[in-house]
Design a protein around this nucleic acid. Structure first.
Length: 386
DNA sequence: CATACCGGGATCTGCCATCGCT
DNA sequence: AGCGATGGCAGATCCCGGTATG
């Protein structure tokens, strides 16, 4: 163990020096694999290491602890990393530090995705360069990394990443959407190219199946309206589409325009959730006296309502109805349900103070930004009942 | 000028199961 | 057997303001 500890320090040093002297590193070929192979061999020869169930590498634990890594968490997450003889935590730290990451960020990244320390500098550099093709600043990449280290590090296949980027661009998504996609759903880019292709073909198939004329455009619409779609299984999306069709009795063109329009973003809900949500909504509204046709109209107009949890929905409806607002009004202006119960309640209270009558003046006022609402209240106070 | 319509911005990871490779 | 890579899952809104319209 002592020998390997010495070697580790040596290697880390060597790595750091190489790293610094040759930055920006176009041709450094310190591949983790070849190094670890070499090391495994020499370690096996000294007859001490590589016992089955060899204890975790103490020097690695020490070195990570010094960096502020939560080693317990890390070991629990990816124990295999701690049995490796060669790791590149110093290289990773130097690399991220150079990009502007704080020590805290680096420690937290390693704690949450320990395998990150197995990536070589040249690999990291290559991957970063690819990301920079889409994300304009290092700081932005860092914030994504900090949020989701796994998205950046889970795949070690840079070639696949590049192919994915080219594929997604080839779909005709505009730069803004590609940027949003990598920012918001970075996992899309660590999917295998095959998987992304399958999912895109699946969406095109849906379009054709529903009699759509332009599958490419359909796919673009769906993705840009629901950036999570490519990290959902096709099984899930398929079942949700089938369920929507059946429970709302939608025809092809209604379904098609729902999917590529405002409805896109409910496709990724879990099957159970969507199912429960649909039936709960239909039940609740029916109990409150709404006709099926109205409920369908409501969902087509404001499908996001299916994302609202049962409890939240009933508490929102509750406070609207208590204020004397009718179901008919809610169905006409469902956007009101966008706002939190708290927000709605506060507005209603304000409006009661100035004697606002929802029956004659409508409920549109509840769907107003805070700024506009306050201005409106002020005017109402100045000239009550004109 | 006021309201109505509409789209967009923030955000969505962290864990487990499985598979193929060595 | 154990690893790394990858697929898939659960979780469950709220708010703002540009611009057309009147």
């Amino acid at each position: 163990m002592a020998a390997s500890k010495g070697l580790r320090v040596f290697l880390s040093l060597h790595r750091s020096l190489t790293f610094q002297s040759t930055f920006p590193l176009v041709s450094v070929q310190l591949s983790t694999n070849s190094l670890s192979t070499t090391f495994c061999c020499s370690a096996a020869e000294d007859g001490e290491s590589n016992r089955p169930a060899s204890p975790e590498n103490e020097s690695l634990v020490d070195s990570l602890s010094l960096m502020g890594v939560d080693t317990q968490m890390a070991q629990k997450r990816q124990p295999g990393v701690f049995r490796r003889v060669f790791t590149n935590e110093q290289g990773l730290a130097t690399f991220l530090h150079y990009k502007g990451a704080s020590c805290n960020t680096i420690a937290s990244v390693i704690s949450r995705y320990p395998r990150s320390i197995t990536r070589s500098i040249s690999h990291l550099d290559e991957r970063w360069t690819l990301w920079r093709k889409i994300i304009p600043t290092d700081a932005e990449i860092l914030s994504i990394l900090d949020r989701s280290p796994e998205s950046f590090f889970r795949s070690s296949d840079n070639e696949s990443l590049e192919k994915n980027m080219n594929f997604l661009i080839s779909l005709g998504l505009d730069t803004k959407d590609i940027h949003r996609l990598l920012t918001i759903a970075p996992r899309t880019f660590s999917n295998s190219l095959e998987l992304n292709k399958q999912r895109v073909e699946f969406l095109e198939g849906i379009c054709v199946e529903l009699g759509g004329k332009n599958p490419q455009q359909f796919v673009k619409n769906v993705i840009s309206k629901n950036l999570y779609i490519l990290i959902r299984s096709t099984k899930r999306v398929r079942m949700n589409i089938d369920h929507l069709r059946a429970s709302l009795k939608l025809n092809n063109s209604e379904l098609l325009s729902l999917l590529e329009g405002v409805g896109a973003e409910i496709l990724y809900l879990s099957n159970e959730y969507l199912k429960n949500s649909c039936s709960n909504l239909q039940q609740t509204f029916a109990l409150l006296g709404s006709q099926n046709a109205d409920i369908k109209k409501l969902i087509l107009k404001y499908p996001v309502i299916l994302k609202i949890s049962q409890d939240t929905l009933s508490s929102k409806l509750d406070c609207l109805l208590k204020a004397g607002i009718t179901m008919k009004q809610i169905i006409e202006k469902p956007k009101v349900l966008d706002y939190s119960t708290q927000n709605i309640t506060a507005k209603i209270n304000e409006l009661e103070k100035v004697g606002y009558d929802f029956q004659t003046k409508g409920i549109q006022i509840l769907d107003m930004s805070q700024k506009r609402f306050i201005a409106k209240i002020k005017r109402l106070g100045e000239s009550p009942e004109e």
